[in-house]
């Protein structure tokens, strides 16, 4: 139910993408996401798809991993496709009872489906190939200029680190609770909506109670290791841009420029 690769999980490795500076990955990811949002031409989609394939190859991601990343979103993805298919006015291709599938709907639905898929893949690639601590180190470094405006870059980064650290632990705990409740006869995946929602209460209450207890102990554990809010920390991993990073940044910039150009002058 909650197993498999979860959103935001890091898979250690030594691929080209793994070894990029995390700031590069965040910036390139942001540029590519912008490009996806701007894109509206077949040529643009072709460029983006090529870029995605290159990125997936560079990260050494197996097709199976890509599928497991997309799986949690399949309801949203199919729903958007179906809605576009049936509810876009235009030339009817064929009918399913009172509903007509239109050509415009097919085109639009396909575009949106593809865009969402690309967005999910880009953002998942970022978290799959970057350890959460590197991600936060990068965010901290990118937000540093904003420190003067009073943005607590460091503490924000720490909050994110910890949130990410506890996602798998809380999922494991949820699974244990589910098993414990099921062994006492609870049914989670049957019945109407209200029944299902009500069925979640015995899962969520212990989960939240556990999370608060954890938070308290974690605060103690951090204090033991001399963590101080607002103090100057160092990093074991120093961030450094290398040639690899410039290549990727220029590449992502070129993709973004191309989609912009296609949209406005194409």
């Amino acid at each position: 139910m909650l197993s498999g690769i979860t959103l935001g999980q890091y898979v250690p490795g030594r691929s080209f993408i793994h070894r990029l500076d995390p700031r590069t990955k965040i910036l390139a990811c942001a540029m590519l996401i912008l490009a996806v949002l701007v894109c509206n031409r077949p040529a643009g989609y072709a460029i983006l798809t090529l870029g995605t394939l290159l990125a997936l190859g560079g990260a050494g991601t197996s097709p199976r991993l890509v599928m497991s990343v997309l799986r949690p979103f399949w309801i949203i993805l199919t729903l958007t496709l179906v809605l576009q298919l049936f509810f876009t006015p235009g030339l009817a291709l064929f009918a399913l009872g009172p509903l007509h599938v239109t050509r415009e709907g097919l085109v639009l639905g396909g575009q949106i489906l593809w865009r969402l898929t690309l967005l999910i893949i880009f953002s998942s690639l970022l978290t799959l190939t970057t350890s959460p601590l590197m991600l936060t180190a990068a965010l901290e470094s990118l937000l540093k200029p904003l420190k003067r405006l009073g943005v607590p870059a460091f503490d924000l980064a720490m909050m994110m680190t910890i949130a990410l650290r506890f996602i798998p632990t809380l999922l494991q705990e949820a699974q244990q609770i589910i098993k414990a409740q099921q062994s006492r006869g609870a049914v989670f995946s049957r019945g109407g909506l209200t029944r299902r929602v009500r069925g979640l209460v015995p899962l969520l209450v212990p989960l939240f109670a556990g999370a608060f207890r954890r938070a308290e102990e974690l605060a103690t554990a951090m204090e033991i290791r001399c963590y101080r809010v607002g103090a100057n920390r160092t990093r074991m991993h120093q961030l450094r841009y290398s040639r690899r990073d410039y290549i990727v940044l220029v590449g992502a910039g070129a993709v973004l420029a191309a989609t912009f150009a296609l949209r406005w002058w194409g």
């Binding site: 350890s131 554990a221 033991i224 290791r225």
Partner: peptide
Amino acid sequence: NQLVASVVEEDVAFGPENLGLPP
């Protein structure tokens, strides 16, 4: 409840980093 990082070695580094030691 006492491990802060998502990678073993980064968790060990947490304390020394808090002390502001050089990398």
